[in-house]
Write a protein that binds this DNA or RNA. Structure first.
Lengths: 159, 159
DNA sequence: AGGCGTCGGTCGAGATCGTCAAGCATTTTA
DNA sequence: TAAAATGCTTGACGATCTCGACCGACGCCT
């Protein structure tokens, strides 16, 4: 479904999406039309979701990030979700199992901004906020190589 | 520090980082060498952190994602952080204020994998895990336009 | 076994794109 | 006020991408 050459191409592109077809071709040992075709298909299949740039939020004045756990009040789930989606300062939001329904990332320019945004959902949900002090790991893709068969189920069976 | 043209360029590139200089130039009304120079400086200044591709984890077999809150046991903070950084399935990790020291995102192929990875830090930290059921907002940058001056501090002063 | 369609690859030519040097207008600085 | 620094445009050159034509391996059917 995704052969070794594909994985190598992805690995290179994750590091620099502007790598030329020629360069990609050289690194994996194909011709550039072949690489072009492979990329086209990776995109078509949705493996590559997008070519994009990563922007430093600080450069835009967003000096603060926070992780917010959100528990909508009974009956307010959909309204809360819609609200979150419409507030552009939410840079990420996951719907999760457990007491907290949503876990979201917030980019703000100041503590005042943070307060202002949380106020907008305060009457529809309980929130708990954690300010981000450092980012030991910034967004990175999972391992591309097909290793990591450390499935615990097998270990359990074995014992 | 970042003028309107820069912001428009970024906005286009976030949507498609492969947009040609010619196309960018046409859309903002400059010549391509000018655009090239602007991009060069945006990169140099660190505003653009990287050109990259966004990969669908599902395409790589990672059918499960989880948000893990991690509270290292006394004295184990650094060991835990190092461990997290070294486990490639952690796709993101923030160090935050509050009881939970770290909040991390985990990409796994199965529940068994999840268990296996959590076991590796179980003796050094308390963890609480939430499985991701849906992603209402996938990673997106904060608003590029300089609006959003909804600073609560001012509102407080006004009242 | 032989023929045939498909898939994924190469090659080469033409079109497109990026980069460089030169030059110009505007603003800042001395 | 003159000089220097910015930031832009233009045009030409070199590199890159894309398209069509062609080729070989593989699987399938008769």
């Amino acid at each position: 479904m995704l052969d070794d050459l594909d994985r190598r191409l992805l690995e290179i592109l994750v590091k620099d999406a502007r790598t030329s077809l020629k360069e990609l071709a050289a690194q994996v040992g194909l011709s550039s039309p072949s690489v072009s075709e492979r990329l086209r298909r990776l995109e078509e299949r949705g493996v590559i979701r997008a070519f994009t740039v990563e922007i430093d939020p600080l450069a835009l004045g967003y000096t603060l990030q926070a992780i917010v756990r959100i528990r909508p009040l009974p009956g307010k789930l959909h309204i809360v979700q819609k609200l979150i989606e419409e507030i552009p300062e939410f840079g990420e939001c996951d719907k999760v199992t457990g007491d907290d329904c949503f876990v979201a990332r917030l980019f703000v320019r100041s503590i005042g901004d943070l307060d202002g945004i949380l106020d907008r959902i305060a009457d529809k949900a309980e929130t708990s906020t954690a300010i981000i002090k450092a980012q030991p790991i910034r967004r990175r893709p999972p391992p591309l190589d097909a290793t990591a068969p450390r499935d615990k189920a097998k270990i359990l069976q074995a014992s």
